[in-house]
Amino acid sequence: MLKNMDMDMKVKFLHGFAHKIRLQILECIKNEEKTVSQIVDAIEGNQSNISQHLACLKGCGIIAGRQEGKYVYYGLRNNQVRDLLTMFDVVLEDVESDVATCENHIT
């Protein structure tokens, strides 16, 4: 059984994935690094908003930034994060109809 601190840490980590824009960013950089401008263009977002979400993802250790000249390239921190995103898709495919009809979502 997880201790409360471990559970709180897990919830904090999962929060990094729990926003539509953050998931869009993760899907955008899943297979290759991109700059903020490339991410903004790809997901048709607002640069300030995207930057805030990138900071959240970086702060949670989900992504990493790499400076090259005047640009910062963002990518997934490691292959395990890529595997986790893929596993989300696999599990969701199995439970999609249940999720779609769930009326008990607690926020």
Rank of each mutant, 00 (worst) to 15 (best):
Q38D: 11
H15S: 12
I39Y: 01
D8T: 11
A100H: 10
K58S: 12
K10A: 13
L23T: 05
A55V: 05
L54R: 01
Q52A: 10
L54N: 03
C102S: 05
R22T: 14
R66M: 07
T35Q: 09
K30P: 04
C56D: 14
D94Q: 14
K3V: 03
I43M: 08
N104Q: 15
V95A: 08
T86C: 11
V95T: 10
L57D: 03
M1V: 10
A42T: 09
K3Y: 03
E103P: 00
M7I: 11
I43Y: 09
D94P: 00
H105I: 14
E44Y: 08
I62Q: 01
E96M: 07
K12V: 06
K58A: 08
E32M: 06
L92T: 14
Y73V: 04
L26P: 06
T86F: 10
Y74L: 06
Q80L: 15
G75K: 08
L26N: 04
E32K: 15
V72F: 05
V81L: 12
G59V: 04
I50P: 04
V36Y: 03
F88R: 06
C102R: 10
T107A: 11
N46Q: 06
I43W: 05
V40W: 00
S37T: 11
L54A: 05
D83Y: 12
N4T: 14
F17Q: 00
R77E: 14
C28G: 06
A42E: 11
I106C: 12
K34M: 12
H19Y: 12
L14W: 08
K12I: 09
L76C: 01
A18M: 12
E32V: 07
E32Y: 14
A55K: 15
L23I: 10
M9E: 15
K34A: 10
Q47W: 02
N78P: 00
V72S: 09
T101E: 09
A64K: 15
V72H: 02
K34E: 04
E103M: 10
M7T: 09
R66D: 09
M9H: 11
R82V: 11
V40P: 03
L26W: 01
Q67G: 02
M1C: 02
E32T: 09
V91A: 05
C56M: 14
Y73A: 07
Q47C: 09
K58W: 04
D98P: 00
R77Y: 14
G69P: 02
I25D: 06
S37D: 12
I43Q: 05
N46R: 05
V40R: 04
F88D: 02
I39N: 03
H19I: 09
D98Y: 13
S48Q: 14
G45M: 02
R66H: 07
V36F: 03
L23H: 06
H19V: 07
N46M: 02
L84P: 01
A42L: 07
V72C: 13
K70C: 04
H105Q: 07
L54C: 03
L54D: 00
D8A: 15
I29E: 00
E68Q: 12
A18G: 06
I62E: 02
